[in-house]
Design a protein around this nucleic acid. Structure first.
Lengths: 152, 152
DNA sequence: GACGATTAAATCGCATGCGATTGAATTTGG
DNA sequence: CCAAATTCAATCGCATGCGATTTAATCGTC
């Protein structure tokens, strides 16, 4: 079958990208009740995961870890700051750099937040080995796609 | 190790949900140049995939297929209508129902759109068997998560 | 047939994502 | 040393997602 004939038969439900897209939304909807109790949205939770682990980080390093850019993270971090969970300060040595540091109130959420992360991780319907394998393969696929985008 | 001790060690990079989240964004960013040439965003492309296959569909059926709600799809469909790719009409038999039908201009994008879908499907770094397996497992996981959300 | 319950879509508000641009600080090359 | 290039974060505009609510139409039960 040539590419055109194959293309005519392709359907949304078999597309890899749509499975990833709809899976990501499904997780986000599933997590909402638990994250609501923490007062966090899912992207805010992702940022807090980084801060619970690292305590302090620059904007640049954060963009690399969460794979989002400053145009997304700046408003999000301002909301976290308004909620009292982080401090945002300019770096003394290089004024271009923004330092982000978790506050006492942010640290106070750590235990509950990390417990939530575990509960959520176990809610996928896969067994533990399956969860680990799928997580690794999706991460590998993501890195492969990102690699291709860079070298394009 | 108890749950609390396990939770303290958990990191963003090993979370299943974050792999799905970052994979979905990676696909979206990777696809953008090709979708730009079609004049579509990724969610618009998803809707057009359904319409290229079905020609005509109700809003209700569309929300089930793409797993998004009318509050997301109404503005998106109005943009597609403004671009001349779809018609939106009220159903004669039941005025609550919105019928969505692809136009000639929308059909004219079908061949290019479906070819794009094939190119994109092959860009993940997995071989064909791996693509199919991952697609199926992600879809199964998504359905499992959605099932749990419903019964919660 | 009436009327409360249900269903479908739209509307509103808020929080992302991200391309494009801007502005400020630093680095680099001559 | 200094101007151009680079880097970093912020800003702006637009397009999602989605919870909550509203509006309109239909259904179900008496």
């Amino acid at each position: 079958m040539d590419k055109k004939a194959f293309a005519e038969q392709i359907k949304l439900e078999v597309l890899l990208c749509f499975s990833a897209y709809s899976l990501s939304h499904a997780f986000s909807r599933f997590y909402r009740p638990m994250l609501d109790r923490l007062g966090l949205t899912y992207p805010q939770f992702v940022v807090m995961m980084v801060l619970w682990e690292n305590g302090k980080i620059t904007m640049k390093a954060l963009t690399d870890l969460v794979m989002l850019e400053s145009n997304t993270l700046t408003p999000l971090l301002k909301k976290l700051e308004a909620a009292g969970l982080v401090h945002r300060t300019r770096n003394r040595d290089d004024e271009r750099v923004l330092d982000i540091e978790i506050t006492e109130a942010g640290l106070a959420l750590k235990a509950d937040g990390q417990l939530a992360a575990v509960d959520l991780a176990l809610a996928s319907g896969e067994d533990l080995d399956g969860v680990i394998e799928m997580q690794q393969r999706m991460a590998k696929m993501r890195d492969s796609v990102r690699e291709k985008l860079e070298t394009a």
